[in-house]
Write a protein that binds this DNA or RNA. Structure first.
Lengths: 167, 167
DNA sequence: GAAAAATACATCGCGCTCGATTTAATCGAC
DNA sequence: GTCGATTAAATCGAGCGCGATGTATTTTTC
């Protein structure tokens, strides 16, 4: 717990030529990568919302559907590992998808601890109705597919780093 | 509402040489930029949590404190414009910061509609205790400051694009 | 200067997210 | 086979986030 003794509060002009530690003292919100990610995540959500409203889905529900369209019949834990969500988040979310008739939830007959999540016919059919969603979002992003892929790869790498650090 | 009639569900191998529209049919979660952002946002949160727990703050509360350290005495609306949050989110959050004695909330005497949020002495003092947080997170990110700044700028641009699209 | 419109914040309901804990089933050691 | 440890989901409480709505104050319009 370092106890430096420097002046506080007043909006200081940024020191362009300062070293890292000094920079970290004088930065504002806009300098935080985490804030850029945080706020962009919300911005994506706002773009998705009107598109997903038509399907009756929220964004995390949509992610689950995408995962199931790619591979049907997954466990709660398996979905959580892919989407990085805990069962405490997924269980109620999946119950809502079940209430919407898009998925079914059944205990695995071989291992009664496991719950298997599968697409219903309506869940499968939804894929067609959701067909244009990624294209609409791609357009809203204003990025070329090349830019997008590079950015996607860099951020995914960043996520891996953070996971490793979070041991 | 496009009504194509193609086979569904089974995990198809990605067509490396396919055009955009076909690509969008066969992608999985890992191909979505929005998912990379979404999951990395959560990953950041997990890195921040143990650091902020010591200060009694959540991540969005920390953002408000950062904003106030940069410029004291801001309105609810002004904070919301910077952090991209609605009053429905900020009002209860600010009340919690007030309960923690880090900020005070007062109606503006000139315009009684406005609530001004200011740092308390404890809120100012917290800045010292939070001094190492950005450095810890920077280290966890595993990025050089150069990489970090470039990525931060690109994502901020992306956020601006999404805001424009979301008219 | 009174009525209408706009502004700033607060309230409410719903869903997401997590950590901590609980419950049930399976696996391992013996 | 039984006890203990492990595993998989579910449950609970707290906080975030938003859209819709409400309330009080200000500004605008006439």
């Amino acid at each position: 717990m370092p106890e430096s003794h420097k002046p506080e509060t007043a909006p200081q002009p940024p020191h362009e030529s300062a070293g890292v530690s000094t920079l970290l003292d004088t930065i504002g919100l806009s300098d935080f990568l985490c804030f850029a990610i945080y706020s962009t995540s919300h911005a994506f959500n706002r773009v998705y919302k009107p598109l997903l409203d038509e399907l009756g889905l929220t964004y995390p529900q949509y992610l689950v559907m995408v995962a199931l369209w790619a591979e049907n019949d997954q466990t709660v834990g398996g979905l959580g590992a892919k989407i990085f969500l805990e069962s405490s988040t997924l269980t109620p979310l999946l119950k809502r998808l079940e209430a919407l008739k898009y998925v079914s939830r059944r205990r695995d007959s071989g291992d009664e601890r496991v719950v298997r999540v599968s697409l219903t016919d309506e869940g499968r059919a939804l894929r067609q109705r959701a067909h244009d969603v990624p294209r609409c979002v791609l357009e809203a992003s204003g990025l070329s597919e090349t830019q997008l892929r590079r950015l996607q790869a860099e951020i995914t790498q960043l996520r891996e780093n953070l996971h490793k650090a979070g041991v």
